[in-house]
Write a protein that binds this DNA or RNA. Structure first.
Length: 341
DNA sequence: AACTCGTACAACCGCGCACCG
DNA sequence: ACGGTGCGCGGTTGTACGAGT
């Protein structure tokens, strides 16, 4: 039973968008609003897949999109959220409303992944530091005794999360002279030339959009700096202490994987109470967890949105105090996409 | 100048989910 | 309950560009 293709493969144009196509797309959205992408190609005569149109709009033409270099703050938020949520780019993007999930994903894959790798190497080289203590906390967290009661387990988990948060906070602290992140901070800006490809320059469309955006103050001068400086990456000698390039493979579970596995649902399932692990399939377990979470929320009649927790955590670096129990249950329910702004 | 290689990023693809009739 | 449709998401690919040789 094959899936129906979103559009006819025959006659559908692929590749970079032209200014003309962008104008057509923008004027259509201007008239009809975003949505009904299926009908867009036929109504506008664009030889593009509806999906492609939606992607083009959401990632590049939509008003309020910020292009160009990621700030330190943005970078930090991405790192923290990635550690917490994993590759949930859409969820991460909801905390950076001016950035698209695609943008963040690309930035992670091309810049931050390498940085984290380097940090791992540095960690291997220099031994104990904040990252080490973080991983210690995570190890502790992951080895939570499955036989403990749910309440005990949650308290332990909450304490572990706070410990991990604290360690992560220290690890990411710019003030900390021993933090490997100081290597990241050593910026070596090198303005590369503006790309000549149309697709990477939003200036044309920004100009186009200005006519109808009205209040939008999206950056229209970003095309000058739209090429992110690849030299944001640490310029320190990347060779590992023992000469082997791949320290990550030696170090066992990486920091990110550790976080992912610990905060992801799978690990929640594996270390959750007996009551929860009685269900047969992983899907059923996940469902059971969700039901359990919902039940607890109803019991307490207090719903603390994930967005609030993360907002507090991310934006107020000094808050490392213990969160209410409900935070934990909400934290695990990733289904809820936060919208802060 | 020509070629190779690495990087950055735009775009595509396949899957899953929600909604609706 | 079920199938069709539309949309969103995450992973992957394609390609332009700059640096190095």
């Amino acid at each position: 039973m094959g899936r129906v293709p979103c559009c006819d493969k025959v006659g559908v144009k692929k590749g970079p968008w032209t200014p003309e196509e962008d104008i057509i797309l923008v004027s259509y959205v201007q008239q009809h609003g975003p949505g009904n992408w299926r009908a867009l190609p036929t109504k506008t005569g664009l030889s593009r897949c509806s999906k492609s149109c939606r992607l083009r709009w959401t990632n590049y033409l939509r008003p309020g999109i910020k292009r160009g270099n990621f700030t330190d703050q943005e970078e930090k938020v991405i790192i923290q959220l990635q550690a917490l949520l994993g590759n949930k780019w859409a969820a991460i993007a909801s905390y950076l409303p001016e950035r698209t999930d695609n943008d963040i994903k690309n930035y992670w894959n091309t810049h931050l992944k390498k940085k984290m790798k380097k940090l791992d190497q540095l960690d291997q080289c220099h031994g104990s530091n904040d990252l080490f203590s973080l991983e210690n906390g995570l190890t502790h967290l992951s080895s939570s005794n499955s036989s403990t009661s749910r309440g005990q387990w949650e308290r332990t988990l909450q304490a572990d999360i706070n410990m991990a948060k604290k360690a992560l906070h220290n690890a990411l602290s710019h003030e900390n002279p021993t933090s490997p992140h100081n290597y990241i901070k050593q910026e070596n800006p090198q303005v590369s030339s503006t790309t000549t490809t149309y697709a990477s320059s939003t200036e044309n469309i920004a100009r186009l959009l200005q006519g109808w955006m009205g209040s939008s103050n999206s950056s229209t001068n970003n095309s000058e700096s739209s090429k992110t400086s690849s030299n944001n990456i640490a310029t320190t000698d990347s060779s590992s202490c023992d000469g082997t390039p791949n320290a990550e493979s030696k170090g066992g579970m990486g920091l990110m994987e550790a976080f992912e596995s610990l905060f992801g649902l799978e690990s929640f399932e594996s270390s959750s109470s007996d009551e929860l692990s009685q269900t047969a399939t992983p899907e059923a377990e996940t469902e059971a967890i969700k039901i359990e979470i919902k039940r607890e929320e109803n019991e307490h009649d207090v719903e603390v949105p994930l967005s609030v927790i993360l907002e507090n955590w991310l934006l107020d670096e000094n808050t490392l105090n213990i969160q209410p129990k409900n935070d934990l249950t909400t934290l695990i329910s990733f289904d809820e996409t936060p919208h802060l702004f």
